[in-house]
Amino acid sequence: MAISRRHPAALFAVLAVALGTTGAAYAAVSAQAAPKATVASATQVDQGKQLFLEGCSSCHGMAAQGSSDGPSLIGVGSAAVDFQVGSGRMPMAGPGIQAVARKTQYNTSEIAALAAYVASLGPGPSIPTAEMVNTSGADLAMGGELFRTNCAQCHSASAKGGALSQGRWAPSLMNSNNKDVYEAMVSGPQSMPVFSDKTITPSEKKDIMLYLSELQKNESPGGFSLGRLGAVTEGLFIFVGGMAALMIVAVWIGARAR
């Protein structure tokens, strides 16, 4: 009897509303996840393609499909391009075990064009908006916990970086800005794993960036930090500085006998 009270079109109406809401919600969420992708103009993509063909295609292939010299860039997203090209790691100076950060080879609009082109090849993590890397209100202590759990094993608890196998290394984070850190987390450059929003939520990413900026202040309540390299430099110092000083005094006190 409940069925008889409904209008025959009710089922379709409910379905339409449900689909519409889901679709709208999805559009909203995916727009948030990839805000840059929507603003890239066709000319920018074209300019990016031109730049790509000139500067990147020799290793990454004419259609960014990858080759024996470089990986495919389809689906890496604009974040990866902005990080790699923006930090001067790409284009690589020469073949090597790991791309070295150096002077940026492209200007801001060229990087944006390259990013737009690569982003147009397939969906991937995009360049974060200013709001996404704004750390005001983030949790510093939580950031420390997350940093020590996820980042310290390679970059060290002091963010000074560390050695990886076969000549690779995790670079120092002492000069990285929030955008770089965010892009590195979502794109996983070089040997770094990807920390997607499922692994570390956007708000947790803010916590990490806040903690890192605390480390970057390079405050050292105990005096000279000896490069924050831990016991190795401390051990070197006790011999080169401490024992040497005491032995000079000992020679001074002991000198006379002859």
Binding site: T149, G223, A231
Partner: peptide, 25 residues
């Protein structure tokens, strides 16, 4: 001169480790 800035390493948790973990000389 700072020695062993324990505050930077955080409390011990078996799930964590830092690059450049070294003992005293």
């Amino acid at each position: 001169v700072t020695i062993n800035p324990v505050w930077m390493y955080g409390p011990y948790t078996p799930s964590q480790v830092t690059a450049g973990s070294q003992p005293d000389w």
